[in-house]
């Protein structure tokens, strides 16, 4: 099912004017920021399709910036997000591309903070719902509707077993899971949509597992960001 629950139809509460160009954009920006794990110092956003054609009139740029500041879709600061970004010391650059994208409303977000960097490719699929297709060039399928755990880890036998058994011992159910790797024995990325928010204890146990490089929690329902775990 593309749309999973009643609030993907009625909702979100949002700053206008377009659920796909504004609310969906804010969500994609926020997922990218949570994937980075902190407020970016520099952001580079490339817009495709209808995003590229009409982003200014819809405030897509403001919504994306608002998302990068960890704002929810109905945050009243979105119309003034450019000023807040400046205050936060965040440098933002927009590009448009005429290349075909998998969905009309697609954005590629690249973020930097100190020696951290990350990227995301995602689409706004209608009604404010989004679908993230790639994180750091790893293929994923993330909706942002559920708390999502993203692990970077080595492509080694047994890593997933120890990760899932750690999660199961915390009593949290995994609703959807996807694994992708760059190369055999190289770096891999696992994304898991969870039925409940992961607690700090589970996260620290996961982080201490062999071959686990990094963990991020993406949770759009949270009021505050899950920075710097």
């Amino acid at each position: 099912m593309r749309f999973k629950d009643v609030f993907s139809i009625i909702g979100p509460s949002m700053t206008g004017p377009s659920s796909s160009h504004t609310a969906g954009a804010a969500r994609l920006g926020r997922i990218a920021r949570q994937w980075l794990g902190c407020t970016p110092e520099r952001a580079r956003l490339t817009l495709y399709g209808s995003f590229a054609d009409t982003y200014q009139g819809h405030g897509t740029d403001l919504a994306l910036i608002g998302g990068l500041l960890d704002y929810a879709t109905d945050d009243p600061r979105i119309p003034d997000a450019e000023e807040y970004a400046e205050q936060a010391g965040m440098e933002v650059e927009f590009f448009t591309s005429g290349l075909p994208a998998p969905h009309p409303n697609t954005v590629k977000i690249e973020l930097w903070h100190g020696d951290r960097e990350c990227s995301l490719i995602g689409a706004s699929i209608g009604g404010g719902s989004v679908s993230v297709h790639a994180l750091n060039d790893f293929r994923v399928q993330i909706s942002g509707e559920f708390p999502t755990l993203v692990l970077r880890h080595a492509d080694k036998a047994g890593v997933l077993a120890s990760v899932t058994s750690t999660i199961s011992s915390s009593g949290v159910n995994i609703g959807y899971m996807q694994v992708d790797r760059k190369a055999r024995d190289g770096e891999a990325l696992t994304a898991m949509e969870m039925d409940g928010a992961p607690d700090p204890d589970m996260l620290s146990r996961l982080k201490s597992l062999d071959h686990v490089l990094d963990i991020r929690v993406i949770d759009l329902k949270k009021g505050v960001s899950s920075d710097a775990i």
Binding site: T46, L47, Y48, A52, Y55, Q56, E93, F94, F95, T96, S97, G98, L99, A101, P102, T106, K108, I121, H133, A134, D137, F138, R139, D155, A157, G158, V159, L160, A161, V179, D180, R181, K182, A183, R184, A188, T190
Partner: peptide, 21 residues
């Protein structure tokens, strides 16, 4: 006001396959 992106861009198809267990 945005600049055109330097091409090529957008690789959604990275290395396929799932991690070995």
């Amino acid at each position: 006001k945005a600049k055109r992106a330097p091409e090529p861009e957008l690789e959604t198809d990275g290395a396929a396959g799932s991690a070995s267990e």
